[in-house]
Design a protein around this nucleic acid. Structure first.
Lengths: 176, 176
DNA sequence: TCCACTGGGTTCGATGAATGAACCGACCAT
DNA sequence: ATGGTCGGTTCATTCATCGAACCCAGTGGA
C-alpha cells in the first residue's frame, strides 16, 4: 500500500490497521517473527522476499512499533528485529488468517499445528485452549509440524522450524 | 499482490490466505460486505476506491468463492455481491484487525462497537463472546456506533450505517 | 599485508499494478 | 430525443515491486 498516505478518508480502525500491516509481505514478516525469526538474513532466506522490500518493511514495522530493532552483539555490530507487545497482539490476526486459509482454500494440508504448551491441546477457533477453558498467549503456544510440511526443506530457517517449538522463541540457525 | 502467482514458495496457509485477501483494498471490500454493502456503487462511494480496482477486486473475490454475484432485479439487470460461507468465515480476521488497530494504533477512537446480539457483550479479538465463551457467527453480531463515528457523514452508505444494525443485513441506501 | 567472505543493507533499470479521469452501453423516465 | 443512473472498461501517468548488482564495515586466514 501507499505508505501511510492512503485510505485517507478511512478513519476506521480496520483501515488504519491495514495501513500498517496490509502491505504486501508485511504479515508474512510478522508471521515469521512469531516463529522466532529475528535476523535480516533469516527473513530473507525464509520468505524469498526482495532485499529492498524487506528493508522497507522492517523499517516501517519498526516505526509503527510492531517490531523493535536491537543490537545483540557488537563487533561486528548485528541487530535483530523482535516483536513488541503491540506486535504480539497481532497473534489473533495471524492465527485467524491461517485458520481461514486452511479451512477455506482448496488443497491445503496443515503445515503447522498450534497447541497449548501447558496441556498439548490444539488451539480452538478463537485462540483458546478447549481443554483448559482459557485464552492462550502466543508465548504459551507450541508450534508442531503438520502433515503438509516439507520434511527436507532447502533453507536453514525452514529446517530449524521442523521441530516443535514455542512461538517467539529465538531461532538458532548457524549460531549453534 | 500479484494475482495468484506470487508467494510462490509459500505453501503456508497464511500465505495462501494472503494471496486471496492480502491485496490492497480487498479486506476493506470484505469489511463493507459484513456491514451489509452489496452493490457496486455503494462500495464505490463508501470506500473511495478507483472504479477499475473495485471491479478487479470484486471479480477476484468472486472467483475465490468469497463473494457470490447474483441478480437481484431484471430490467434493468442489477447484480449484487454477497459474502458466501467462506467469506463469512473471514469475520474473525476482520474483527481481530479492527480491534488491533483500535488498541494499538495511537489516537483511534472506536468507530463501531461489535457486540453479541444475544447478550450485549462486546466481542473479543477472535470474534468470540467472552461472556458466553462461544464463537459468534456474524449474523448474531450487532454493530453499534462508537464515539469516533462522524455523526453527519457525506456519503449515503455511511449515513445508513449510523444506526445499530446486524452484520450482513443488506443495506438500504436509496431503494427505500 | 593482502585477500576473500559475511551480514546488512542501497542502487538501479525493467516490469507490473494503482490511480483518476474519461468513455461506453444498457436501461429507464420525460 | 434528451438526460440520468448503473456498472463497468480504457487510457495515460504515477508508484511499487522485482531481481541483480553493487557497497561497506568487520573478521578470519595466509
Amino acid at each position: 500500500m501507499a505508505l501511510g498516505k492512503d485510505y485517507a478518508t478511512q478513519q476506521c480502525s480496520i483501515a488504519r490497521a491495514l495501513e500498517v500491516v496490509g502491505e504486501r509481505w508485511t504479515l508474512l514478516v510478522v508471521r515469521d517473527a512469531f516463529y522466532g525469526v529475528r535476523r535480516y538474513s533469516d527473513f530473507l532466506s525464509h520468505l524469498g522476499i526482495p532485499r529492498a522490500v524487506l528493508a522497507t518493511r522492517l523499517q516501517a514495522l519498526t516505526e509503527a512499533g510492531v517490531l523493535v530493532r536491537r543490537r545483540y552483539q557488537e563487533s561486528p555490530p548485528r541487530d535483530e528485529y523482535v516483536l513488541t507487545g503491540s506486535g504480539r497482539a497481532l497473534w489473533p490476526t495471524v492465527r485467524s488468517l491461517g485458520l481461514w486459509g486452511r479451512e477455506h482454500l482448496p488443497g491445503t494440508l496443515p503445515m503447522r499445528i498450534f497447541v497449548h504448551a501447558a496441556c498439548g491441546t490444539e488451539l480452538g477457533a478463537f485462540g483458546q485452549c478447549p481443554a483448559c477453558w482459557t485464552g492462550v498467549d502466543p508465548e504459551d503456544v507450541e508450534m508442531r509440524p503438520g502433515p503438509g510440511l516439507d520434511p527436507d526443506p532447502a533453507d536453514p530457517v525452514s529446517r530449524a522450524l521442523l521441530v516443535p517449538r514455542r512461538l517467539l522463541q529465538p531461532l538458532e540457525t548457524d549460531r549453534v
